[in-house]
């Protein structure tokens, strides 16, 4: 088939995104397109703006300039719940479980409220069934009454993933879902991400500092430094890029291996 006939759907399109915090430009002129079904890695040194970009896409922060489009519609400045209903889910780098709710209830929230089409008739029973399904999927071992504060660091990251998945997203923004985990847990969580993409057909943007795990899974990498995209390409191309190496050399305790 000639290339022109291959239908590539642009799921997410960022056009000239800028974000200022006071005088600090956390993001400047970010333009990026993400295709449906893609597994994209987003890397960059600490404070380069990765989480801020997730906050802008998911509606937690309004960009100072630029446009966010999702499935062809302008979603710039919409409330997070609206963007979630459209199919964008995110995890938090610093897990934000609702501490007064059980783990199962936390995930149920995603099922009950996350999908606008379904949630109007979604009963608690089905929501709970779905919640347990996602909890199993991410490999979280909990009882019905387990509270979030009983979870380990790895457990909390899995909870973030399960709650995001319960909203039945088409695009998942995963912010450091394996940092702070041991080698075995890293392998397990990485394979979960891979299955989210392959089995659930969810497009993923993955932010991670642990290069080894990230580079072996993603198809394309975007590198941020001081709020700008400094490199973009296949993992093999990017890891040899001079600017990327320089950006990371400035960093003292980088967890690269």
């Amino acid at each position: 088939m000639p290339p022109s006939l291959i239908q590539v759907l642009i799921m997410l399109s960022l056009d000239g995104i800028g974000k200022f915090f006071g005088g600090l430009a956390a993001l400047s002129d970010i333009s990026l397109k993400v295709e449906e079904g893609e597994f994209l890695g987003l890397i960059g040194p600490n404070g380069s703006g990765k989480t801020t970009l997730f906050n802008v896409i998911s509606g937690v922060l309004k960009p100072s300039s630029g446009r966010v489009s999702f499935m062809g519609a302008d979603i710039t400045g919409l409330y997070p719940d609206k963007i979630c209903h459209l199919g964008v889910a995110r995890t938090f780098q610093i897990p934000r479980p609702l501490k007064d709710l059980t783990v199962v209830e936390n995930v149920m929230l995603g099922a009950l409220f996350g999908d606008s089409g379904r949630s109007t008739y979604h009963s608690e029973e089905t929501a709970k069934r779905d919640a347990i399904k996602y909890i199993d999927f991410v490999g979280l071992k909990v009882g019905e009454l387990t509270m979030p504060d009983e979870l380990t660091a790895a457990g909390l990251r899995k909870l973030e993933l399960a709650r995001a998945l319960a909203t039945s997203p088409t695009l998942l923004l995963a912010d450091e879902v394996i940092s702070g985990l041991n080698q075995e847990e890293i392998l397990e969580a990485s394979s979960v991400l891979n299955r989210i993409r392959d089995e659930m057909g969810v497009t993923i943007i993955w932010v991670e500092h642990i290069m080894g795990a990230l580079m072996s899974l993603v198809e394309r990498v975007v590198v941020l430094d001081y709020g700008k995209i400094i490199a973009e390409g296949k993992p093999s191309e990017v890891s040899g890029d001079k600017r990327v190496v320089e950006a990371y050399l400035g960093e003292e305790e980088q967890e690269v291996y």
Binding site: S58, G59, Y79, D81, C84, A89, F92, G110, F113, D115
Partner: peptide, 10 residues
Amino acid sequence: VAASSVGINI
């Protein structure tokens, strides 16, 4: 923030 991110209309 967590609530609205799972789709709850605040």
